[in-house]
Amino acid sequence: MQIYQPKDGYCYNSDTLFLHHFAMPFLKKRYALLEVGAGCGVLGMLCARDLSLNLTMIEKNPKMAELCAHNLRINRICAELICADFLTFDFIKSKTNIFDVILSNPPFYHNGVIKSQNSDIFSARYAENLPFFDFVKKVNSLLKPEGEFIFCYDAKAIFSLFSTLYTFKIPPICVRFVHPKVEKSATLVLCRARKNSKSQCEIQPPLFTHLSKQKGQHFTQEVQAIYHHANTWSIKC
């Protein structure tokens, strides 16, 4: 899959590919799926490539939305693309207003991190541009009664994530932590939450990205398999 990305803007990374791998077993044919913060479109397109979905994508940055539209065309993926702010866009007046699944790799860098001076990168990375509480509140209004919210986030924010999800009665039902190495703390959490669920939460085995005793970029077999399956080819433009 060819993915055009900006030379000087935000580019997708391994988090997106890990989220795609995590989410796919939970998706079903013909699901109405909304991707929030589509960027160049790689996450939603991978899901639609692997399974026939009714895909809607929303991206507020016009430059990224233009790239996303181009990537949809060249990869022959059918989707409705909306260029708007997710928090303010009125889905009720649009033709798609209720979803089986909302999928997102949202901005989650916290305020203590040195901020990029590039406005496009700043918008895509930092949580203040999509506060998680406001995000989940809007997600709750758009999901079907047993719809699911599947996303990734900074693992260190797990307490506030779960607190917010329970506040809006979209409790987590499956999580997986991503570690750079066996001896390192988790840096990312992959989470599946279901509206009105009373199920207990499954904790999947951790995903380790690199081999512990190797120097350089020696990925684990599972990560290599994830990259191989995604089979993306990035082109900077």
Rank of each mutant, 00 (worst) to 15 (best):
L72I: 06
F91C: 03
S119I: 15
I74C: 14
T56D: 01
L103S: 04
D120S: 15
T88F: 00
E128Y: 05
L67T: 09
N111C: 11
I82V: 14
A127N: 12
N71W: 08
D85P: 01
T88K: 10
F99H: 04
M64R: 07
A48Y: 00
H70V: 09
S94Y: 07
Q117V: 14
S52L: 03
I58D: 11
S104Q: 02
I102Y: 08
F122C: 08
S94D: 11
T88P: 00
T88S: 12
N75Q: 07
Q117K: 15
F135E: 13
H110W: 07
F99E: 00
P106V: 05
A84T: 06
P131M: 10
N71P: 04
H70G: 02
K63T: 08
D100Q: 03
S52E: 09
K93R: 10
P107A: 08
P107G: 11
R76A: 12
D134G: 09
S104F: 02
L130M: 15
S119E: 15
N61S: 13
D134M: 11
R49N: 05
M64I: 06
P107S: 09
N105T: 12
I102A: 04
E59V: 03
T56A: 09
N129V: 04
S104W: 05
L72A: 12
K137V: 08
F89H: 10
R49K: 11
L67W: 01
V101Y: 04
T56W: 06
F86Y: 11
L130R: 05
L67K: 12
A79H: 00
L72Q: 07
S52K: 07
V113E: 14
N105Q: 05
N105C: 13
N75M: 07
F99A: 01
T56C: 08
I92F: 05
C68K: 01
I114Q: 14
L103N: 03
D100G: 02
V113S: 13
R73F: 04
P107W: 02
N129G: 03
S119L: 15
F132W: 08
P62V: 11
N111I: 11
I77M: 07
A127H: 13
N97E: 03
A124Q: 11
N97S: 14
F99C: 03
R49S: 06
D134C: 07
F135H: 12
N71Q: 04
F132V: 14
I82T: 08
N54F: 00
L81S: 03
T56R: 08
S52M: 01
I82G: 04
A84M: 02
T88A: 07
I58A: 07
F108I: 06
F89Y: 15
C78R: 11
V101G: 05
F108V: 09
K93V: 08
R76D: 06
K93D: 10
S104H: 04
A127T: 13
R73D: 11
F122P: 00
D100T: 05
H110P: 09
N111D: 15
N61Y: 04
H70E: 13
F135M: 14
A84E: 13
E128G: 00
E59T: 04
Q117I: 12
F91W: 01
V113C: 13
F122G: 02
V113T: 15
E59H: 06
K137R: 15
I77H: 11
I74A: 05
D134L: 15
